[in-house]
Simulated scan of single mutants.
Amino acid sequence: MKAFYGDLRLGILGGGQLGRMLIQQAINYNVTVKVLDPDREAPCRKLCDEFVVGSLSDYETVYNFGKKVDLLTIEIEKVNVDALEQLEREGVLVYPQPRVIRLIQDKGLQKQFFKENDIPTAEFQIISSPAELKNASIPFPYIQKLRRDGYDGKGVYKVVDESSLAKAFTEPSLIERWVDFEKEIAVIVARNESGEIKTFPMVEMEFNPEANLVEFLIAPSTLPHTVQQEAEEVAKNIASKLKIVGLLAVEMFLDKHGRILVNELAPRPHNSGHQTIEGNVVSQFEQHLRAIFDQPLGETDCLNNAIMINLLGEAGHEGPAVYKGIEKALKCPGVYIHLYGKALTKPFRKMGHVTIVDSDREKAIEKARYVQEILKVVS
């Protein structure tokens, strides 16, 4: 790999908020950053050295973009893997590796990987047609997920009983046994090319019931140490089995019986790690860069109690974004606001996040609830 200090050309597929925060960290390493995204108004557009407008799913576009960089990474999984595989064959470093992205793009392949490697997960069944769904062996209620292209709660449907089947997905999907869970938890793990692996401490998550995406995150967890240790070991095991280079977010359930079940994987920085910017010794974004640059991984210890809330576009509002309550929020000590530079808001669109840190966990949660109440994104 080329040296730092401006010689290294890093390409990022995707120009959203994850790419934006990755660039903010990459600036500290003085690397040249190029970004490809189909939206000419994407959050990364003003921060990178070169911004290219183009399709992430088009072979030629991704291939031609990748030929102009030394190292290629992603901030979204929906990319043309065939082009990435060809670039890899021609000597471009692609992290995470194309084979990992291909596996994780397909939730059915993910589940089969879990089963083949004895990774704990909910009972599932692969569904290829509506007829198979009607004859499913998993009892009601269950969750149906599209095998491809689902994200942030999209492509997920709860099948409560036979009457729900009328609105079920007809595309290839999988169904999972409904998990009666105590908590939704996540662990972010990093692995570099040298094989060094480190996890961030486990976090607890609360999801928006309408949008089905993370709305409130608490770190560190106060669940029993044995639970936290087991979750981190599961994440390390998956990263090791995949031999991934980069970050891997592992979303899990802790069920009512104390069992940990892996839900889904994301091979990139993730919403469940935003609080690491202020809350941990090293952030998830720096750790991802260290991993793909094959540098020593940073220490991941929590510096403080950190609560992260997503700033979602308010229901009923669509148009130019207006942020109400910023001044009130900033009067609270330990409040850090991150706006993603998206000009237009719409219901439940991720417009930013806020991290609240405090040495007193309950005070941190109290302040976070207050910020969540007063800070709104409207039009």
Rank of each mutant, 00 (worst) to 15 (best):
A291V: 04
I260C: 02
A239D: 11
N310V: 01
A249Q: 03
K167N: 14
Q24H: 11
F51E: 07
N212S: 13
G11Y: 06
G15R: 02
V371G: 00
C332D: 08
C48P: 09
P120V: 06
D49L: 07
V335Q: 05
F216D: 02
V81L: 06
K67D: 12
L330I: 12
S359I: 13
A168W: 10
I143F: 14
E230Q: 14
V227M: 14
P43C: 08
L10P: 01
L311I: 15
M308N: 08
Y340A: 07
E299Y: 11
N310E: 03
A186K: 01
V52Y: 03
L312F: 04
P38W: 01
D106Q: 10
F113P: 09
M1Y: 08
L242A: 12
R40G: 00
L72W: 10
V160D: 11
R45E: 03
K376T: 13
E182H: 13
E85V: 00
Q295C: 11
N305Y: 14
N192F: 06
I238L: 12
C332V: 13
I188S: 01
V227I: 15
E77L: 08
T355S: 12
K158V: 15
Q372K: 13
I104L: 08
N310A: 08
R9I: 13
I12M: 12
K363E: 11
N304G: 06
M205Q: 06
E366K: 08
E182D: 15
A249D: 08
L56Y: 06
M205T: 02
P130F: 11
E41P: 00
V322W: 05
K107C: 09
I143D: 03
Y336S: 07
K256C: 07
L375Y: 09
G325W: 12
D118A: 12
Q229R: 07
I126W: 00
G54Y: 03
R290E: 06
L8G: 02
G319A: 12
R259S: 10
V227R: 10
M205K: 06
S359T: 14
D294N: 15
M308F: 11
Y323A: 10
K167A: 04
G279C: 10
G15T: 09
L146H: 07
